[in-house]
Design a protein around this nucleic acid. Structure first.
Lengths: 148, 148
DNA sequence: TTATATGCAAAAGCTTTGCATGGGT
DNA sequence: ACCCATGCAAAGCTTTTGCATATAA
């Protein structure tokens, strides 16, 4: 959990929402605060629901509505996973990362790689397209790794 | 539709299935033949169902079972999309491609990019992992493009 | 003959929507 | 006051599963 990232996103979220003319309510506020803390890497809608239900009385409808709203405002990135599950993470300008999924555990590890970033831009240029976003998911096993 | 790719995959599919001790049946055969032709780039399970229902009497259950089986055998690649929708495409060794999704039309265009491929392998090496696969989806708008 | 493949219908799981109520501004 | 946000419950969709039947080997 990166405190700077959390506060920066929290501020931006509130700014975007109020400038979009939205009123604040308990449910969406709870979703936003949770995401700022725990949504720095992929978090499923279901997990968000569980966490919120544990502490507050928040309805599923409101959670899904908040997620869609934040996504539409560009505050969230969305990656769909198997089982009809939607996963979200906060969007922080200039803080791109990709995802590695461990085959054995299924856990997701975020990573940053400038070479990969550059290769994506180059590929887009060769394709003749202007990118609005990109999803890169690597799957495999990490080498427990003896460094002989 | 690439005829070589189609025939090559068809042959491999039948080989893998029989060597796995599976019997052939009408439903799965129909799914396989459809995929060989139309599954060279992402095709949703729903679309497969629609196409098969149009020509044959194939149940949804059998289609989903066939897709899971083929995926488990490594014959299909699976990408989950929004709305709980699963999309599949045939796997052809040495014929990797990535996907570009046009924001305006939503259409998917496959593309090949060696630089990107290399960057992915390099990133994996830096991460200290052995890849079993990767998904790259680029999103944006294609530049209608005046080449002044 | 015997295990597998198939179909139908029901169930499961995630997400969305309708509607009345509560709460910001 | 006005209207948005919320909660509940019902509906929607895709996908999965149980079970009896048909069929490949």
């Amino acid at each position: 959990v990166d405190p700077d990232l959390r506060d920066q996103w929290l501020a931006r979220a509130h700014a975007e929402l109020s400038s979009a003319g939205r009123r604040s309510g308990a449910a969406r506020t709870a979703v936003i605060e949770l995401l700022a803390r725990e949504g720095q890497c992929l978090l499923s809608a279901q997990k968000i629901l569980d966490l919120l239900r544990a502490e507050r009385r928040t309805s599923g409808a409101s959670v899904y509505r908040a997620l869609e709203e934040l996504h539409d405002l560009g505050l969230l990135r969305r990656l769909d996973a198997s089982g009809g599950v939607a996963r979200f993470e906060i969007v922080a300008p200039g803080r791109r990362h990709h995802h590695f999924v461990d085959d054995s555990s299924g856990s997701v590890r975020p990573f940053v790689d400038d070479g990969l970033e550059r290769a994506i831009e180059d590929a887009a240029a060769r394709l003749g397209v202007v990118l609005s976003g990109h999803d890169v998911v690597l799957r495999g096993r990490s080498v427990a790794s003896m460094r002989a």
